[in-house]
Amino acid sequence: MDVQVLETVLMLGFAAGVLHAFDPDHLAAVSGLSGGDGKRSVGFALHWGLGHGLAVLIIALAVMVFGAAVPEAFSAAAESAVAWMLILIGAHTFYHLWQQHYRGRVYGGHRRNAALVGLVHGSAGSAPLLALIPAAQYTSAAWGLLHVLLFNVGLLLAMVGVGAALRRGLAVAAKRDGRLQLSLQGGLAMFAVGFGTFLLVGG
């Protein structure tokens, strides 16, 4: 493969990862997780991205190195799990916002939960497709895996940027009016529940 063509395809892998970060279900997951504790938005986004990237890398290894095929039933189950996770994330956030407002308890959140959500997201839907279809065209598995890694790097950087924006937005809202911050956090939780329900109904 020509060097210039190879560089272009690899950069497209990075760009595809950046674009993939902005899928609505990804935004719903990270914003829902951040709704309970905006100060940890970047940490949630980072761990979500690491979990997502691990899933895509495992699938890439299975397909390109071991010649395995991803069962349709597995993808369907993962997509259903994504929908239920979004609903649970939103409901969980609503519960902790209620505790925070009426009982003064602050929700700390768990980054390992964000990594688990990312792992399920990476196993479902278009992520393996976006990462693996171009990678499968490489004559060398090593180049294909490099494409997947660049896809993951692009997605991770973009999602961390989303987390930083969420943290900044909630911090500004908190300085202006505590009720505004609470409303925004509730809106993020509602987005997660609503989109999860939409995925279930649409599926």
Rank of each mutant, 00 (worst) to 15 (best):
G122F: 02
G122Q: 00
S123P: 04
S123N: 04
G125R: 02
G125D: 08
A127W: 05
P128D: 05
P128I: 00
P128L: 03
L129M: 10
L129H: 02
L130I: 04
A131F: 00
L132D: 02
I133M: 06
P134V: 06
P134E: 10
A135H: 05
A135M: 03
A136L: 12
Y138G: 03
T139A: 13
S140P: 01
G144M: 09
L146N: 06
H147E: 09
V148E: 00
L149P: 03
L149Y: 05
F151N: 04
N152L: 01
V153L: 12
V153K: 04
V153M: 03
G154M: 06
G154D: 03
L155N: 00
L156W: 01
L156R: 01
L157I: 13
L157V: 14
A158D: 02
V160K: 07
G161K: 07
V162D: 07
V162N: 03
G163H: 10
A164H: 09
L166K: 10
R167Y: 11
R167E: 15
R167F: 13
R168W: 14
G169D: 11
G169F: 13
L170V: 14
A173I: 14
A173M: 14
A173K: 12
K175Q: 15
K175G: 11
R176T: 12
G178A: 13
L180A: 13
Q181C: 12
L182M: 15
